[in-house]
Design a protein around this nucleic acid. Structure first.
Lengths: 157, 157
DNA sequence: CATATTTGCTTGACCAATCAAGCGCCGGTT
DNA sequence: AACCGGCGCTTGATTGGTCAAGCAAATATG
């Protein structure tokens, strides 16, 4: 009767339950909404924006595919494909890596930088309006730390 | 010079910045991690689990495709396809709707209910371990309200 | 009451992501 | 210096979702 392996575990409290449901909703709605904003506004999908942005934050505006993929939360092959899309638009160029001929650098072109500058305010506004706005009065640093912990996935086992 | 339409908007504060980045990480990592836990543990992908769960919470264990799609954060066609997958496993059955012959009800079978019972603790544990755990000490109700606001997407315009 | 419009759902075409396999290049071993 | 396992990236196949078109039942309209 009190066999722990057969026992039904404690269910979530109502507050936990609503938080989990609300997070589910946000995870579904937010990226799509922001992407739609940016496409509608500047014709630049969120994935491509993210790639350009990460490149721009680097001193030489270039990065190895490896590292860029990680920063964009994309698999390596997903990153390859995104960069190809950007390359055909002339926003990025690929160069063989000097110190390792297997590697490639994605390099932000001037056109790419200009496109980013143009799209940046739109992204900023979307993030503010659709997300940050709803957290006024919260301790954002504390929240950020909690999310960083949750975002650091331990392997499944 | 002070032309507002040409002015660069205020960038995010460092705290805002890290919160946004951390949320991006979470949105990418969490669903995959929980899905992987459940598939590894119980062979039941998160999408299918969610459908079963929503059906089970209804008095007659049945629901119109419409409503179920909304609760599962899925498009209607995505829902159709998920239900078809569940149907071939015998976890769900489809019945014509009595009061409107265009409509269908997805009905949770006994096998489906059993499967859900079996998978439920695994889902619960994953949610606790990967998410809720990191928010001990937070005002969860307040957080939930903020996420509910953020999850209620106003149309893009 | 016949016809047009709308509604509920499925189907087809597509797309962006993933995983797995492949291809060169690297670097250590003998 | 020839080999060989590992690494960086791309390519091919598949998947799970979306949107748009289709179909049948329902409802509104003349």
């Amino acid at each position: 009767m009190s066999n722990p392996s057969a026992a039904t575990p404690q269910p979530l409290t109502p507050d936990e339950e609503s938080l989990v449901r609300a997070l589910g909703q946000v995870m579904h709605v937010l990226p799509r909404a922001i992407d739609a904003d940016m496409v509608g506004d500047r014709q630049l999908p969120l994935t491509e924006y993210t790639a350009l942005m990460n490149l721009s934050e680097t001193p030489e505006r270039r990065m190895r595919m490896n590292e860029l993929a990680a920063l964009c939360h994309l698999s390596l092959s997903g990153m390859t494909r995104t960069i190809i899309r950007l390359e055909t638009q002339g926003l990025v160029r690929r160069e063989r890596c000097e110190e390792d001929a297997r590697g490639w650098n994605a390099v932000l072109t001037d056109a790419g930088y200009a496109r980013l500058q143009e799209a940046w305010p739109s992204h900023l506004a979307a993030v503010r309006r659709r997300f940050l706005q709803h957290f006024e009065g919260f301790d954002l640093a504390q929240l950020a730390r909690a999310f960083q912990r949750a975002g650091t996935a331990e392997p499944t086992d």
